[in-house]
Design a protein around this nucleic acid. Structure first.
Lengths: 339, 339
DNA sequence: CTGAAAGCGCTTACAG
DNA sequence: CTGAAAGCGCTTACAG
């Protein structure tokens, strides 16, 4: 009477649920996914049976049959920059309740490494892609396009057909901070940067535009160091900046950890901030409000970016329309005591 | 002549590889996995064919057929504590080259939340589990045991049959730091703690043992705050500590972010460290060496823990023996200027 | 050392 | 709105 073989694995299957509900497996499958038009009464019966039996769908079987998994690949440069930790947490918190898992990868700011990660992860038939910025190889671009997997870019925005993004203008933010310093009467504003990734260079562009507009630009005031950003490097750059440019009256650091290191170096060397020199940061990371003096910085809305990018991807993965393909969430100048 | 149907998906399959190599799919499968005894000449032929065709195994099909995926579930309390970021990066870097992906989850220090995550992730048939500490629900324990999935615990160690762990003694570390303070002549040593998770409480135990041993223990000197650890909280606890205990001459903070906040508060309030009061931290996080004065702390080897735990899990997943089930990697007292 | 058969648990068209 | 059939791409015993 019962055509159900007990599976060797002991796992409760869709077959058992559908039998318990007195429908076919296909109907049970559709009912459980809330998909297509299924008689509401049957949906209820199937739901009840699944609940009662403790049925949990098998992601592997689902992925194999549908050629799409429930996993979203999220690629960020690195986790040692707290910015990306916040971004990742927000993405994760948005995706998990919707039934998607997060497969994270770290590119170390290297497009070739990103392509390699992408190539490996694509075999998993991800349901979606969340990438940082737009700096990637031609190979990555083709891989993504050929796969047809929905993709949303984070941190920067771009207006282009078929390109989805959530971020803000790094250049505008760099411009705004520089203007703030100029408006406070600073005339020799230095730019201290590390890593020199694309977004840092965009901020630099904003800095240049602002200083040029004010007739204060001087290439010598740019201190660009390709090494990884850290408080220790910030301290070193601070010393070098004041050593090489005794007349510098403001230091715009491309990331808060550099700025925090600079502030501590100032304390150590007895250089008064902001009297002798103003110090500004970027991102508003943990601890910046605790510094002495508290750090003026740009608060970047990474939590909102993570949430909105994930929400946008969710819509794309479900085949829904997205109201705006490029969402600029803006950012905020936070003026504290250091400028 | 060619019995190969072209798959609708266009994906290169094992069937095509085996046909190209002139062997059966099973042999091709075994050859590619480097498993069982297969004629070396055949292995070579299969490898070559796979390479030439650009074959990439399908993880979903593999998981479905073998009832085990190539994913490792890693559960940590939260990423806003930089400690766990380092741990996670090390785990990830060890697992990825070995062909395993990382599925991360954040428990927020809540065993019930951990159980829920575990329940959800178990449906993915993970190949292995990497968990933080030993504080979990009975339900989680049963779930893990019933699944038969290899599991390694990180951060703490425990000697028990069938239990695998890589970590260090939090109590011993707490004891060592407290002894250091006592040996420097401190008599009123306070313990400032946040979060109050199990490992923090173990450090507290070490602190108590050391002070009791020296005849200096006073319950009133423990400032325990269940809120999340942060620099801002450290600053607040610093003020409260000195306000309530004017005679305190040392503050042992359970995490570096608290200690960094305390150090900055001291600067702000004009309290000289270490003359008036010594300040010690725990974990040796980024920036602690940049503080003013540089922070004395315990360097916890989270990178080694992540690497070794992942390496141990790799052995377990491959059915190999593990030399030692409980590995204590120790930790190091780092004496800087603050004590 | 190698292979034919069966199965893992689900979903996709295709019918009705 | 519902279902029978076929298939997704691999691996597990079981033989030989």
């Amino acid at each position: 009477m019962n055509k159900l073989r007990r599976r060797a694995t002991g796992r409760i299957t869709l077959d058992e649920v559908s039998a318990a509900a007195g429908v076919s497996p296909i109907t049970a499958s559709r009912a459980l996914r809330g998909q297509r038009s299924v008689d509401p009464a049957l949906v209820e019966r199937v739901r009840e049976a699944a609940e009662r039996l403790g049925y949990v769908p098998d992601p592997a079987a689902r992925a194999l049959a549908s050629a799409r998994s429930s996993q979203v690949v999220v690629l960020v440069p690195m986790l040692s920059n707290a910015l990306f930790v916040d971004l990742l947490e927000a993405v994760h918190a948005t995706l998990l309740p919707a039934g998607y898992q997060t497969l994270i990868g770290m590119t170390h700011y290297d497009p070739a490494e990103e392509e390699q990660l992408l190539r490996g992860y694509m075999a998993h038939r991800p349901a979606g892609l969340l990438l940082t910025g737009f700096d990637r190889t031609e190979g990555s671009r083709k891989l993504i396009e050929a796969s047809g997997v929905p993709c949303v870019h984070m941190m920067e925005t771009a207006e282009a057909p078929g390109v989805f993004s959530v971020g803000f203008s790094q250049a505008a933010a760099g411009y705004a901070m520089t203007r703030h310093l100029v408006e406070r009467g600073r005339r020799r504003v230095m730019f201290l940067a590390a890593q020199l990734d694309p977004r840092t260079l965009q901020r630099l562009q904003g800095y240049r535009d602002a200083l040029r507009g004010a007739g204060l630009y001087d290439e010598a005031l740019e201190l660009l160091d390709p090494r990884r950003s850290s408080m220790a490097l910030g301290a070193a750059l601070f010393e070098r900046a004041l050593g090489e440019h005794g007349d510098a009256d403001a230091l715009f650091c491309c990331n808060d950890d550099l700025a925090q290191g600079a502030l501590l170096a100032a304390l150590r060397l007895g250089v008064s901030v902001p009297q002798r020199v103003a110090v500004a940061g970027f991102n508003d990371l943990a601890g910046s409000d605790q510094m002495l003096p508290p750090l003026t910085t740009v608060h970047t809305p990474r939590v909102e970016i993570g949430q909105q990018a994930a929400a946008m991807l969710l819509r794309l993965m479900q085949g829904q329309e997205v109201p705006r393909a490029a969402v600029d969430v803006g950012c905020t100048l936070v003026v504290r005591g250091s400028t």
